[in-house]
């Protein structure tokens, strides 16, 4: 690790550097930064549709007095704190098991586990709804196995509704994150493992002390992107609960209302208030920025 990690920062002008990053930066400036600045400007305006007027910090004031915003914020954090660790651990464990060259049916297993994130959202939502309805497959199975006596109220109880959403996201994105780990594992020198194995280091210790440290850059990558993904969680809550439809709540008591769904509603479902929606968006930006900084910081510290 130490041979490759320290990067010399070069203060001098380096034409090569600019040539490599130039095209990407130009495109990002045009198609991301410019619209972002535009939406930042919009966050200081208020009104319905095109009847916008300058509002200064009125939107921020509204934000702090908006109970739905706080519901969305709380839900988003619950999803983030519970779901991201479960999913990434599962993905990492699965990837390292699949990386064993002696394992049979590797290709089939890999493909199977990757499948969920390919499945179209429409089929996915129809399926999950039908599995989790009161007398659906999940409850029938649980009752049949004697795990529960009465069906679990997935759609009518806030706790179970959130659990269902967490199951759904984990199901869909574990295989996706696994891909990044698998790819990174190919860059690890196999002989190190062999040496450790011959020295009698147990499997779990090899996993914790060899695999995990070597994958650190990619683990950081998946942590940051999963954080972003969860804080922007939209698809699952919009399609599995009624949150995306014209009439319908995002789960009982809005228990599955996320910040992104709220922004979406403010922009498209409700009488459109683009200014306020933009203000809520910047809350996400702020949160992700802080969390990512913490994650980078944590990853950096352990290097020493």
């Amino acid at each position: 690790m130490s041979a490759i990690s320290p990067r010399r920062l070069k203060p001098r002008f380096d034409v090569n550097g600019w040539l490599f990053v130039g095209p990407a930066l130009a495109l990002i400036a045009t198609f991301m930064v410019f619209p972002i600045l535009h939406s930042f400007w919009m966050s200081f305006q208020t009104g319905l549709g095109v009847r916008l007027s300058f509002a200064g910090l009125k939107n921020t004031y509204r934000l702090f007095n908006d109970p739905l915003f706080f519901t969305a914020l709380t839900n988003t954090f619950i999803f983030f704190l519970v779901q991201v660790p479960i999913m990434l651990t599962l993905a990492l464990v699965t990837a390292s098991l699949l990386n064993n060259p002696d394992l049979k049916f590797r290709g089939v297993l890999r493909t199977a586990i990757f499948l969920p994130c390919v499945t179209s959202l429409v089929a996915y939502s129809v399926l999950f709804k039908s599995m989790f309805v009161a007398n659906g497959l999940i409850n029938t199975t649980l009752i049949g196995l004697g795990i529960v006596d009465v069906g679990i109220p997935w759609m009518t109880d806030p706790f179970w509704c959130r659990t269902m959403i967490i199951i759904a996201i984990t199901w869909r994105w574990t295989g996706y994150n696994m891909i990044f780990y698998l790819a990174a594992m190919q860059n690890i020198d196999r002989s190190v493992y062999e040496a450790a194995r011959i020295d009698g280091v147990p499997t779990w210790a090899r996993f914790l002390h060899l695999t995990v440290p070597m994958l650190k850059p990619v683990i950081l990558f998946t942590t940051v992107t999963s954080t972003i993904g969860t804080l922007q969680l939209f698809d699952e809550v919009a399609t599995i609960t009624g949150g995306g439809s014209a009439s319908g709540a995002a789960g009982p008591g809005n228990s599955a209302l996320t910040l992104s769904l709220y922004i979406y509603n403010l922009t498209f479902k409700f009488a459109p208030n683009y200014g306020y929606a933009a203000t809520v968006s910047y809350v996400i930006v702020f949160l992700v920025a802080v969390l990512s900084f913490l994650q980078f910081y944590a990853a950096r510290e352990r290097k020493a």
């Binding site: 739905l68 009518t156 109880d157 009624g242 014209a246 009439s247 319908g248 709540a249 995002a250 789960g251 009982p252 008591g253 809005n254 209302l257 509603n265 479902k269 409700f270 009488a271």
Partner: peptide
């Protein structure tokens, strides 16, 4: 739509 989403959210109560 705004009020509807609030009403729907409170129905399970």
């Amino acid at each position: 739509n705004e009020v509807d989403s609030v009403v729907a959210a409170h129905q399970p109560e």
